[in-house]
Every structure is written in structure tokens, then in C-alpha cells.
């Protein structure tokens, strides 16, 4: 790891100021991804601004029923938060299925949003990778791509976003609050991460001088009936091949509300809007679940090793919706 200069910011303004004033600077919080990438020589910042001292570690109920999650709330604390467990179980589950207890104790809400892909070729600095070194090509296209994207990929990059938490946030219509030089703004979670297009080196729509301060969950009463299913190569401590976050409200056999998002399938957490359209207002049965899943995956494209993900995603969507429909509002 290249050495770097280190500073510890005590408030958001100072942090933003420091990142604007210094070349090649990055914010550091839990370190569970950035330190890893620095050790692999993928990230080589000259300056690190430690933001863990900022007073952003609270989970607060908002008037109107929403919840604000400070950017420095650690993953384990968020998953164990009673409000989240009761009102947004999909979020607790998604976090708990990610990484390990040790990592969840370090990783923060803001940091989780900033995770970078686990593509093998992104990690191997001897390989070609447009995300790591723009213009070099993509070794995953013709290489081992079993873990890669089936939706929204480009010829320049077929990497996936590795987060579980973000998939739940996508289903929950979360918004990301950020602060930059003199400007604060909110970004809907589905617009926070990008598709690769021809600039896969840019993961998110966050500006270089912007700092995530909190994530807001809207009041979503039916999210009490929500869940996360993660399909992976071992029982625990593995990234998703496919994951599904969903919330469902069924009234008199008809789908009143549904939120559906997929993980492990795209460069960003994939909000399944096509499926939601099919589902909303329809009779809640297996047939419509299958149709909705198929509709969402119509645009999917498989590569040499990952075509199975298309069927796997469909099956997992159906399975999750069936479970939520049968459990109704009981949860």
C-alpha cells in the first residue's frame, strides 16, 4: 500500500473543505472496502480524510413516519435497530446477510453505498479493466464471468455492485443526503449508483467533493411485510449471485403495493420497475409473479458463465413474492 497523508475531520464542513483542497483525496470511514482496495493498489489516494469522528451515527425517526440513518451508523447497529427490524425487516436482513459480523461492526451506512465491485479482473492489477484503468478493455467479457451482470451491462464493463444493503434501500425508495461545497442535496437511491455505459470507472453520481451525511427511508407501512433473499455459493460470508429485496401489500387477494429490487445482477442495485408494473393491481398468485419476473428479465443478457442468473433471478423473485404473499401482513 502506498503511504498517504492522514487527517481526521471533526465536522462535515471541514471534511468537505479538506477534500476540495487536496489532490487525490478520499474520505475514509470503516475502511472495509477502501483499505482493501488500497492494499491491492487499485485505489492509491494521497490523502485520506477520516470521517469517523463526525456526529453522524444516529438513527432517528422523522415526522411523517420515515427514518433518517446517519452515514456513520455502522451496519451491525443498523441491522439490530428495533425500528428497522420492525418496520423495514428487508433492510435488517440484507445487512445481516452481507459480509461477516466483524465487517458489519466496522462498515458504515455511507461506506456501504460506496463499495466497489468484486470483479476478479478489477482486483487483478495485471488484468485489463476499464473500471480500474479506463480504455484498457474488459477481461471479464471473455473470462470468468459467472458472478457478473446480466442487466444494464455494457461492452466496456459487466461488473456488478456487491452491496446487499443497497438492494434493500433500492426497494425501500431511500434517498441519500449529501453535502458538498456549500450545497446540500438529496439523491434518490436508484439514481445514486450508475450503469457502466462507457465510463465504468465512475460508480456513482456523487461528486468528488460530496460527502454522504445520511440515508432517509420514507414511511412505507407495508414494508413491515418485506424480506431479503440472497442466493450464494456458500451458506454465509459470500457475495450474492442473485439477491431479491421485496416488500408486498396484498389486499383481498390483489396486490396493492409492491417494491422489488435485485442484487448481483447489475452495475447498480436493480430496481425491478417492469415487474412492479405487472404486479401492481394484479391478483397475487404464482402466475403473475412468474410473469412479472419474466418481464423484468426480458432485457437480461447472459455471458459465457452467468446465463444461469437469468433463470435464478426469476425463480428467486417468484419465491420471495410467494413467501411474502403467503405471510401477508403477519410480519
Amino acid at each position: 500500500m502506498k503511504n498517504f497523508a492522514y487527517a481526521r475531520a471533526q465536522d462535515a464542513d471541514t471534511a468537505v473543505q479538506l477534500i476540495t483542497q487536496n489532490q487525490n483525496a478520499k474520505f475514509l470511514s470503516g475502511g472495509t472496502n477502501l483499505v482493501d482496495l488500497m492494499r491491492e493498489n487499485i485505489e492509491q489516494p494521497d490523502h485520506l480524510i477520516d470521517v469517523t469522528g463526525l456526529p453522524l451515527a444516529q438513527v432517528e425517526e422523522l415526522p411523517g413516519g420515515g427514518v433518517s440513518i446517519g452515514a456513520l451508523v455502522r451496519n451491525s447497529h443498523l441491522a439490530a435497530n428495533q425500528i428497522i427490524r420492525e418496520r423495514y425487516p428487508v433492510l435488517s436482513q440484507a445487512i445481516l446477510m452481507g459480509a461477516s459480523a466483524q465487517i458489519r461492526n466496522m462498515a458504515t451506512t455511507g461506506g456501504n453505498l460506496m463499495q466497489r465491485t468484486r470483479c476478479y479482473y478489477f482486483y487483478d492489477t495485471d488484468a485489463r479493466c476499464n473500471k480500474r484503468e479506463p480504455g484498457t478493455g474488459c477481461d471479464a467479457l471473455e473470462g470468468f464471468n459467472r458472478i457478473h451482470a446480466i442487466l444494464g451491462a455494457s461492452d466496456d464493463c459487466i461488473a456488478t455492485h456487491p452491496s446487499d444493503m443497497c438492494v434493500a434501500l433500492a426497494a425501500l425508495d431511500a434517498t441519500v443526503h449529501v453535502t458538498g461545497t456549500g450545497v446540500e442535496r438529496t439523491i434518490p437511491i436508484v439514481e445514486f449508483h450508475r450503469l457502466p455505459e462507457d465510463t465504468p470507472q465512475i460508480d456513482t453520481n456523487l461528486q468528488p467533493d460530496e460527502l454522504i451525511t445520511s440515508v432517509e427511508l420514507p414511511a412505507l407501512p407495508f414494508a413491515r411485510n418485506s424480506m431479503y433473499r440472497k442466493v450464494r455459493d456458500r451458506a454465509s460470508y459470500a457475495f450474492a449471485l442473485v439477491s431479491v429485496a421485496a416488500a408486498l401489500e396484498v389486499e383481498d387477494g390483489t396486490i396493492k403495493n409492491v417494491r422489488l429490487a435485485l442484487g448481483g445482477v447489475a452495475h447498480k442495485p436493480w430496481r425491478a420497475t417492469e415487474a412492479e408494473k405487472v404486479l401492481t393491481g394484479a391478483k397475487a398468485d404464482e402466475e403473475i409473479f412468474k410473469r412479472a419476473a419474466a418481464e423484468e428479465l426480458k432485457a437480461a443478457r447472459g455471458y459465457k458463465h452467468n446465463s444461469f442468473k437469468i433463470e435464478l433471478a426469476e425463480r428467486t423473485i417468484v419465491s420471495v413474492l410467494k413467501t411474502l404473499a403467503s405471510e401477508g401482513g403477519a410480519r
Binding site: 468484486r118 473470462g143 454465509s236
Partner: peptide
């Protein structure tokens, strides 16, 4: 995972070479 194009092992990591964990 041995990538025959360059003769490189592409998952030289305990995150991607999956040893069984306790729950397995």
C-alpha cells in the same frame, strides 16, 4: 479459477475461493 488466456489464477482470495464456513 485458472484463466487460460494468461495462465493466471483470478480468485486468489479467501473471499472468492470459497472454503466452507461454519454454517456450511
Amino acid at each position: 479459477l485458472f484463466d487460460v488466456r494468461k495462465g493466471r489464477i483470478v480468485n486468489p482470495s479467501l473471499a472468492e475461493y470459497h472454503l466452507p464456513v461454519n454454517l456450511d
